[in-house]
């Protein structure tokens, strides 16, 4: 993506240490409040759907995906079968296949327990944050685990509070928190933008996102954009004057 990046990769040693975990945990703190409020909302919603607090927390701790959990709750409420609910969750979480694949060159250097544990805690925001800092030179894959912990913990705490206490917090919409991930992405997009490398993948992603947003079922927009952007970047790779990196 950047000039001189392949040389940097070769000379970099990928590690997985608690210093990286700590850096990730601290760097993801600004995201924690938004996740917490969403957790509270999910707790309330689960309570309204007839789940106990324990069930709600169990669901948050095992499924760990706001959109998939809400969709599954509504499907369960309508008496959907296990297969239908599983398909819903897989569709809404299909983007994680791409996230995991993109982490392989970096997180693959970590011990398997660390890597697969980090993946358990993977979310949209902490993946984006991790890829961003990795692009900027962070080589400690502990960052992925740390930023995952920083967003997983408030999700559980929020679910617990929402399920236990109920309505004392204004809705995330009134606080603008439904916009948090959009604002985060818009800011990082500008931070990561590189004049030559970014334009065509971003255009492809935009067209794919607009089309999927309009015609595909919910859950496909991010997948379509990610695949289209990645495909164009891969396809245009031959135009890159740099020698290919030793991968």
């Amino acid at each position: 993506m950047t000039q001189g990046r392949s040389a940097a990769i070769e000379s970099r040693r990928n590690t997985f240490t608690r210093h990286g975990v700590r850096r990730g945990f601290l760097a993801a703190q600004p995201l924690a409040i938004g996740v917490f409020v969403y957790g509270v909302t999910f707790g309330l919603l689960a309570l309204g759907s007839g789940l106990s607090v324990v069930d709600a927390v169990l669901m948050s701790a095992t499924v760990y995906s706001a959109t998939a959990q809400v969709a599954a709750l509504s499907a369960i409420g309508q008496g959907a079968s296990i297969i239908a609910c599983v398909s819903t969750v897989m569709l809404l979480n299909a983007r994680y296949l791409l996230y995991g694949a993109s982490l392989r060159p970096w997180l693959g250097q970590a011990p398997p327990v660390g890597a697969y544990g980090s993946l358990y805690l993977l979310g949209d925001a902490n993946w984006l944050l991790s890829m961003r800092v990795h692009d900027a030179g962070e080589d400690d894959a502990g960052f992925v685990l740390g930023s995952g912990l920083a967003t997983f913990a408030p999700w559980i705490a929020g679910t617990l509070l929402g399920g236990a206490v109920g309505h004392w917090i204004p809705g995330p919409r009134a606080l603008g928190l439904d916009f948090l991930l959009v604002a985060f992405c818009a800011a990082m997009l500008m931070g990561m933008w590189r004049a030559h490398a970014s334009l065509w993948p971003a255009m492809a992603a935009f067209i794919a996102a607009a089309a999927a947003d309009r015609w595909a079922p919910p859950g496909w927009t991010v997948v379509a954009a990610g695949l289209a952007g990645a495909a164009v970047a891969g396809w245009r790779h031959r135009d890159d004057p740099r020698p290919p990196s030793a991968a």
Partner: peptide, 29 residues
Amino acid sequence: LMRFIAVTARLEAALRAAPLAVMVGVVAP
């Protein structure tokens, strides 16, 4: 799955572009 796939320079370029493309996918709608 990426264990079984050789990460060529081209694939690496594609995977590196994924975060940017996903961000566009979140912001566009």
